[in-house]
Amino acid sequence: MDAQLYLGVFGNEDDIVNATLATNSAGYTIHDVYTPYAVHGLEKAMGLKSSRLTWACLAFAAAGLLLGVFAQFWIGSIDWPLNVGGKPFNSLPAYLPVIFELTVLVGGLGVVFSMLVRTELYPGKSVWLPDSGVTNDRFVIAVEQRDAAFDPDAVQRLWQQFNLIEAKSPAEVAG
């Protein structure tokens, strides 16, 4: 971890959402929030923008579509024109199923691959957990201690309104 973090541990969904909203509006820099499941509304509370992976998906799907169109036209009418029942070499309607399947295949695999690259998830990656219960029943908010003016007590006071379980700095976590 590059930045010095200060962590607050909570026990349920509503508390973490409210704590995140309050922390964000109080002007602290939220490094990240850790939850055992996807909590809806939390990304808004953190002020995250919507992901651009949708565009990656569109680009990959378009690539798959073009692959399907050009591969079939090239194979069917340029490289080896084959007369099947006297039908035209360029029979687009017959090409649609394969075009569609390739669109879905390339779009789907592409967006999953993009996500793994973007979120830096890969097999065997070493794990950093802010709290041992974060994949079970704990919700953790991590704020960055930017400068000397950062007052842990003030943050802790803010969090205590939302049933804070414990507040800690990551030195205790790493141990």
Binding site: Y34, V39, M46, L48, T119, E120, V127, T135
Partner: peptide
């Protein structure tokens, strides 16, 4: 895959 429940990742 090194999953740690980060909301940035969840998102």
């Amino acid at each position: 895959f090194g999953w740690n429940g980060s909301v940035r990742t969840w998102h």
